[in-house]
Every structure is written in structure tokens, then in C-alpha cells.
Amino acid sequence: MNVTIPKTDHELGSTSVVLLGLIVLLGLAILTGALTVSYATYLIALSGMYVLLALGLNVQWGYGGIINFAVVAFWGLGAYVAALATARTSPLGLEWHPLFALVVAIIFSVIAAILVGLPAIRLRADYLAIATLGFSEIFRLLVANETHITAGMAGLAGIPSVLEDLPFDTVTTNLLVVAVAGALVFLFLRRIHRSPWGRVMQIIKADEDLAESLGKNAFSFKMQTFVLGCVIMTIAGVYYAHFIGYVDPTDLDPLETFFVWVAVILGGSGSNRGAVVGAFILVAVLEGTRFLTDFSIFAALSTGPLRLLIVGVLIVLIMRFKPEGLYPPRDELIWPKSQTDTEGQS
């Protein structure tokens, strides 16, 4: 006789509800004329980028409890490699194929992640926080000041968009690209998360010494998650460069890192779908605040501070009422196939 293995339930219902809600909101905004269709498409395409960023950070913080305050730098690495390698205005004058640039960006990202992680990941979490923050600022300053390579504050314009041959406008094409990229990354992460690998990450997050005492090389696992998360952020940056067509050092504001953290915490650390939902809500808040200044009571405020205020209030509300985030992880990290099609299942 076989051991009966209880099954975990699967429902994707409520995630779809939230996403559907946001889409309905967008639909209404378009119908009432508050938003144009192309702006709405732009917003979703932008959300896609934040989905990638949140998924990347969720791998690090959510799976493994690894602090990364350099989200914007790894994203910027992707954006800048893409821009420098493909833009007409690039001081390097390379004009590579975007796909080739993507591969190069990923390689750079892996190298940077290893260089940052190698000395710091072995140490306590706070060292990694400082090391990543330091890296982020160094990267921003390098980009701003190494004018002969990066064009400095002037920024890089004329980054080509991708898949021009498709019968869609540029924004729609970008939306498709990011939807495909987001889905692929999501499915990739889902598979590796609900596995022995994801389980080790979880035990490392809970108690690193315990993981070591059970024969798991904590350093190696943490390094893997760190690099993986950074690569996903870099992919988001490459996408951004081709999507917007222009980058400059002001894009590398550490505030962006903070926003991605908000998305992950809002959605529920450790949950992939939480990261997705968190990213959409984040963009809704960031972009929605633009319109608030239309209302007289907010008229005196400028968008920037208002935005931060609302994000702050949101965090406080979440911490107060749903400290685990909207979608805390719920699946057991057990390889799904090992529980289905078992002979002994009754």
C-alpha cells in the first residue's frame, strides 16, 4: 500500500479578480475619457516592467530573505547596456542587434551580481543591504560622470524599439513583448520555486544555521537566488530601454528600488502572484497620483510628494491590516508532479 499524500488546493481566482478589477478600472477611465487608449496600453506595458522587477526581487527577498537595495542599479545595468549597444546616439557606436545586447546585458548582470554578492552574502543581512546600496549609488555616479562612455547627464536617445515588423503600434508591441517575458519568467519561477530548490531557499530564509545543519550549502543557494533575481531585473531594464527609447542617469534614482520593495511587500513576500499584483497596484498608485492634483484639495501639492505620501499610507495600512501582504505564499514547496498521478492516491 502507498502512503496517502494530502493534496494542496489550487485556485487562481482572487488574483484574477484583482487584475480584472484593475483592468475594469482602466476600461472605465478610458470610457469616461480620463485616459486615452494608448495611455492605458502604455500603463499596462509599464506595469509589465514592474512585474519583472517585483518577480526578481521576490526571488531574492521572498524566497531567500536576501536584501537587495540595488534593484534600480541592476535594472539600470540592463537599460544602459541595451542603450549603449543599440542606440544611434551611443558614444560606443555599436548598434548591435537588441537580442545580442540582451545576452551581453545578462552576462554583465551575472558578473556584477557575483562581484557584489561574493564578499557580502556570506556576512549578515545588514552588510548586504549596505553593499547593495553602495553599489547602486556607485553605478549611478559612474553612469552620470563617465560621459565619454555613457553620455552622462545628456542621456541616450534613439534606442530602437523591437519587433518593428509586427502589425501593431510601438506601445502595443512592447506590451506583447513584456507580457510574453513576464509570463515566461513567472512560469520559470513557479517551477523552480515549488521544488526541492525552493524549499531549501525557504529553510535558509527561516534559519540559515538549520539549513547548514541539514547539509545545505547556504552560501551557494543564496548566491544563486541573488544572481537569478538580478538577471530578471536586468531583463526588465533592457525592456525599458527599448520601450521608452531613452535613458538618462535620473532614471537610476534609488527611489525606484524602494518602489519595487513596496510592490513585493504589498503583494506578499515569497509569492510570485503577489509580486505580480503588487506591481500592478504600484503602477496604479504611482500613475494615479498624477490625476489627484486635478482635484482642488490636492491642487496645492505637487505630484512627487503626494505620490510618496500615498505610498507611505499604503505601506502603513498593509502593515496594520495585512502584514503578510495581499497574497502571502500559500503553496507547499513540494514538487507538484510528485503529488499528482500517484498510484496510491485515494
Binding site: 521544488s195 526541492p196 524549499r199 525557504q202 527561516a206 544555521d209 545545505k216 544563486q224 507547499e332 514538487w335
Partner: peptide, 28 residues
Amino acid sequence: RRLEKMTVREAMLVGAQSQLGESILPLW
């Protein structure tokens, strides 16, 4: 040792040594 958010059997499974599925590539 605290083990937040893990079920008993999940915690048990971590004890098994040299699992193929603990590397990313074999998962694919």
C-alpha cells in the same frame, strides 16, 4: 529552531540529502 510557514512534511523533506531537485537545471 523556528521554521516559519513550512508544513511538517516540507520541513521533513529538507532533511533528505543530495537531492537532484535542489539544483535548478535538473528541474528542467
